[in-house]
Design a protein around this nucleic acid. Structure first.
Length: 372
DNA sequence: TCTAATGATTCGCT
DNA sequence: AGCGAATCATTAGA
């Protein structure tokens, strides 16, 4: 295979073939025996010598070769040999299945409304984002349009880049095809080989396409995360909500773990979600525990508030000649009395001990209690 | 602009 | 699943 002359040894005497046999390599071979060998040798010599000649000479030589009556026969035989040797090795995994990664990217771009028909693909995602973040309708509609605008921008860039890519790909492919067609006049290049080359080019180009799709997906992901990540659009709870939560927390300090029902009620009162209530209590517990001293003032403040509320309820109750009911707080307060809880050192804001009936005092628990 | 406060998320544990 | 703990990201105030 290293030596082209040896490879072609069976083709000697091609010049003796008639035009009718030209298309049939087997017929060529059958008739080859006994024909003068120097004809093919001459042709090969001429081919080899082309590179050493000047452009004009080569051009003339090329033309002469192209016009040679044996050219089509030689061409087809050489193509066949090439097909059986080089290309059969190269083209083993020719039939490549669709790249799974490209398929994944395609699916994602389609789902996000970047590729495919332009409709509410992105708006659905935006709505989901708004819903997940629990934003108000006004907020979500503003962010909704913002999201859509940004997605449309990504879509536009994607399509224009894709167009550029396709144009470049087809231009390059055409260029290579023309080149190979042109070269096929002087060296054995079959249409099949040109096809293969086109496939190779497309494979190479598809990696560029993948990059484009990947970066588009990343852009969409970043955009989505901006709208989905509630941390980015955090709003402090309003004063009344914080007050309600704090009242509950400090009046249940010995066990600041609201039941599911209590959470629902708090959520309703504060105009927030149950999970927000859970978050708030989670944060509050840990932050209180970490620095009880810092929260002491706040604890006392709410203790007073709670006690005053309880006292007024109690007074109303006794005025109505009925016993005070535990856990029947006024609107906006929870579980005002905690029978059996120990008094753990309630102080006023300026540090003085408050004179509040133990049954009405909310508990300020120690770190150990919070742990238990 | 810096910093403390705060709501949300994540992770490991029970 | 619920919790504590650590952390992130944003807000609000100095």
């Amino acid at each position: 295979m290293d030596d082209p002359t040896r490879m072609l040894s069976g083709l000697t005497g091609l010049s003796g073939l008639g035009q009718a046999d030209v298309g049939d390599p087997d017929a060529v071979r059958k008739q080859a025996l006994g024909q003068p060998q120097q004809d093919i040798g001459d042709i090969l010599q001429q081919i080899m010598a082309i590179t050493d000649e000047s452009l004009d000479e080569a051009q003339a030589r090329k033309h002469a070769l192209n016009c040679h009556r044996m050219k089509p026969a030689l061409f087809s035989v050489l193509c066949e040999i090439k097909e059986k040797t080089v290309l059969s090795i190269r083209g083993v995994q020719e039939e490549d299945p669709p790249d799974p990664q490209i398929m994944r990217l395609d699916n994602m771009l389609l789902a996000e409304g970047v590729s495919g028909p332009e409709k509410g693909g992105g708006s659905a995602a935006a709505a989901a984002a708004a819903a997940a973040a629990g934003g108000s309708p006004t907020d979500s509609s503003i962010e909704h349009s913002d999201y859509r605008a940004k997605l449309a921008q990504i879509r536009q860039i994607y399509h224009s880049e894709l167009e550029k890519y396709e144009q470049a790909c087809s231009e390059f492919t055409n260029h290579v095809m023309n080149l190979l067609r042109e070269q096929s006049r002087t060296r054995p290049i079959s249409p099949k080989e040109i096809e293969r080359m086109v496939a190779i080019i497309h494979r190479k180009f598809s990696s560029i396409q993948m990059q484009l799709k990947q970066s588009t997906c990343e852009a969409v992901m970043i955009l989505r995360s901006r709208f989905l990540d509630a941390r980015r659009k955090r709003r402090n709870f309003n004063k009344q909500a914080t007050e309600v939560l704090n009242e509950y927390f400090y009046s249940h300090l010995s066990n600041p773990y609201p039941s599911e029902e209590a959470k629902e009620e708090l959520a309703k009162k504060c105009g927030i979600t149950v999970s927000q209530v859970s978050n708030w209590f989670g944060n509050k517990r840990i932050r209180y525990k970490k620095n009880i001293g810092k929260f002491q003032e706040e604890a006392n403040l709410y203790a007073v508030k709670t006690a005053v509320d309880a006292a007024s309820v109690s007074a109303q109750a006794s005025q109505a000649n009925s016993p005070a009911t535990p856990n029947s707080g006024s609107p906006g307060s929870f579980s005002l009395s905690h029978t059996g809880d120990a008094y753990l050192g309630l102080r006023s804001l300026n540090g003085e001990a408050l004179n509040i009936a133990p049954s009405l005092q909310p508990q300020v628990c120690t770190e150990e209690q919070l742990h238990s």
